[in-house]
Nucleic acid binder design. Structure first.
Length: 553
RNA sequence: UGUCCUGUGGUGUAAUUGGCAACACGUCUGAUUCUGGAUCAGAAGAGUUCAGGUUCGAAACCUGACAGGACAACCA
């Protein structure tokens, strides 16, 4: 984590340091608005902010950007802190809220009014908007633009004291109505919202706008590098304008923008994620199909894999879409080294070993993780009646299929070679059972005569297996860039098969005392974890990601 | 008919700041293997959006096009 790949932001920090700016300090902040759950794009920003500061021996604050009480809730504040911690980062005692600065922001507004740089505008929203003009044409001055500072101050105090109603008036900065940058055309600083705030309750009825609050909060916290996403690029002159009015030393925070993360086959905007939750297209913010941090956590992703992903995608100003395969690579790579192996059958087909003694049970040695010897071994029960994966049998095998078929010998992992002698079907001509013979000489999985088999199958013993529910997830959308079509609604691309619930699955008894979120590899199938819905009597697994499959039909 | 930003293999990034385009994912071979996984070895795939210019030399600098994005919430 300490040696992130070099990127343009680090280069700028190096340059700033070389110029001796800010006394050699590096101080960043992660400033979410508590209006939703964090997603993997935020994870990238968290890793960038905390990781960059750490690299330069600096600090990172967590700050809730809570300037709009109509959208913000304590539920989100709590989940955000949980997610940042889970990712492996800590802000020590530097937890801040924009609302901590409401008094100071008010005082600063008063000083701007006194120096004639802010005024109260009583026009309605539509009129103000019309006067702003359009990007290609200059705007017009408001008739309230030249109200005297004294009068403005009097009005602003009344605004704060609740004398006016929502929409009656706003406080605006007096900058430049003909600026080519729309954000400089006398931007709003305060609006009236007669709404309780999740932290300040009813103390305020005027609330600062983001643009008026952010740079000042950065300044008061001693932030040196205020990293945000590209859409704030055009806000930077305004950020600088307020900081210039405020600063009283050489220190100044600097805003740097990078491109937000997009991942193929999913969406990354809080608004759209909220829609998926509210309209029940998913089962909540932590639905394992969601790109939210809590969703990915529930799905089985580890903090390590998410940090690795964050490092891999890099930091630039280029708009693009990262292939979800990169994310999947990161979790496979991590879990391959760490996950406990176990055998589980998702679509069971019964196998009876006709020459195996009825009632006999053998405890077979199995390796817990071939990538990590220190994880040791476990015992797996073997008996006459087993389940194998239905797709591991083909009655009339194609030439690329080398698993079980009539007359063919394969290995059951860690146990014996078996040969299929008979296929039993029901009236619908469906295969319901296989009769096989085993070779007692092949115990442990190798034949003393050196004969080879082409396939090794996973299996579980019928009587000892734990019955489980397994939830298989597929991409939420069928289009690589579902939000990227101007003419089409995102919902048109919802994948109807993004969730498949299997209720007749069997897993070896080893998993019995596992806890929610524990990761496993089901051999030959993929990585699975225990869903929090799981109970002692009803185990529920999520498939985090399948194994790479080299078998092409 | 504005301002700002961005254009490098399929994808994401890199190129020590002007020195014959590198890495990762993905894809495809082969070896190996009691996971069709992992591992190992290798391959294909861009001449850097285009056109000019500066230079011994340009992905990088300049000019001009073209393409994409952001900006006209009392959202952040």
């Amino acid at each position: 984590m300490d040696k992130l790949p070099k990127n343009f932001i680090q280069q700028q920090i190096i340059d700033d340091l070389a110029e001796g700016k800010n006394g050699g300090r590096v101080h960043t902040r992660f400033p979410p608005e508590p209006n939703g759950y964090l997603h993997i794009g935020h994870a990238k920003s968290i890793c960038l902010n905390f990781g960059t500061a750490r690299k330069f021996g600096g600090l990172t604050n967590l700050r809730f950007d809570d300037t709009n009480p109509t959208k913000e809730e304590t539920e989100y504040v709590d989940s955000i802190q949980e997610d940042v911690h889970w990712l492996g980062f800590d802000w020590d005692d530097r937890l801040y809220y924009a609302s901590d600065y409401f008094d100071k922001l008010y005082e600063f507004a008063v000083s701007l009014i006194k120096s004639g740089k802010a005024y109260v505008d009583f026009q309605n929203q539509e009129t103000i908007s019309d006067q702003k003009g359009v990007p290609t044409r200059p705007g017009m001055d408001s008739p309230y633009r030249n109200t005297s500072p004294g009068e403005n101050l009097e009005i602003f105090v009344k605004m704060k004291d609740g004398f006016y109603n929502e929409g009656d008036c706003v406080l605006r900065a007096k900058i430049d109505m003909s600026s080519p940058n729309m954000h400089m055309r006398d931007p709003l600083m305060y609006r009236i919202l007669k709404q309780p705030h999740h932290r300040t309750d009813n103390k305020w009825c005027i609330y600062p706008m983001y643009d008026y609050a952010h740079g000042q909060c950065d300044y008061w916290e001693g932030i040196t590098h205020s990293i945000c996403t590209l859409e704030f690029e055009v806000h930077r002159p305004l950020y600088d304008w307020f900081v210039d009015e405020l600063k009283d030393s050489d220190y100044r925070p600097r805003q740097i923008e990078f491109s937000r993360l997009n991942v193929s086959y999913t969406v990354m905007s809080k608004r759209r994620l909220l829609q998926l939750v509210k309209e029940n297209f998913v089962n909540g913010w932590d639905d394992p199909r969601m790109p939210t941090i809590c969703g990915l956590r529930r799905r089985g992703y580890t903090p390590e894999s998410m940090r690795a992903f964050s490092d891999m995608v890099g930091i630039t100003k280029v708009d693009g879409v990262t292939d979800v395969a990169v994310l999947e690579y990161c979790i496979r790579e991590d879990l391959n080294k760490r996950a406990q192996r176990v055998m589980g059958v998702l679509d069971p087909l019964k196998v009876v070993i006709t020459n195996y003694t009825e009632g006999q049970i053998e405890e077979i040695d199995a390796i817990n993780n071939p990538e990590d010897e220190s994880m040791g071994k476990r015992k797996v029960p073997f008996s006459r009646e087993l389940y194998i994966e239905r797709e591991d049998f083909m009655e009339n095998p194609t030439n690329k299929f080398y698993r079980l078929s009539p007359g063919r010998e394969v290995r059951l992992r860690y146990s014996y070679f078996i040969k299929c002698t008979e296929v039993i079907k029901n009236e619908q001509n469906e295969v319901i059972e296989l009769q096989c013979t085993y070779d007692p000489e092949t115990k442990g999985g190798n034949s003393p005569d050196g004969r080879k088999v082409k396939a090794t199958l996973h299996w579980v013993a019928v009587a000892q297996a734990v019955k489980a529910e397994v939830r298989l997830y597929d991409r939420l959308f069928t289009d690589p860039d579902p939000a990227g079509h101007k003419d089409k609604d995102l919902l048109e691309f919802l994948n109807p098969d993004s969730l498949k619930v299997l209720t007749e699955c069997y897993v070896e008894p080893f998993v019995k005392n596992a806890k929610p979120l524990d990761n496993f590899q089901f051999e030959r199938l993929g990585y699975f974890n225990i869903d929090p819905d799981s109970t002692a009597g009803h185990m529920v697994f999520n498939r985090t990601v399948s194994l790479k499959d080299g078998y092409k039909k």
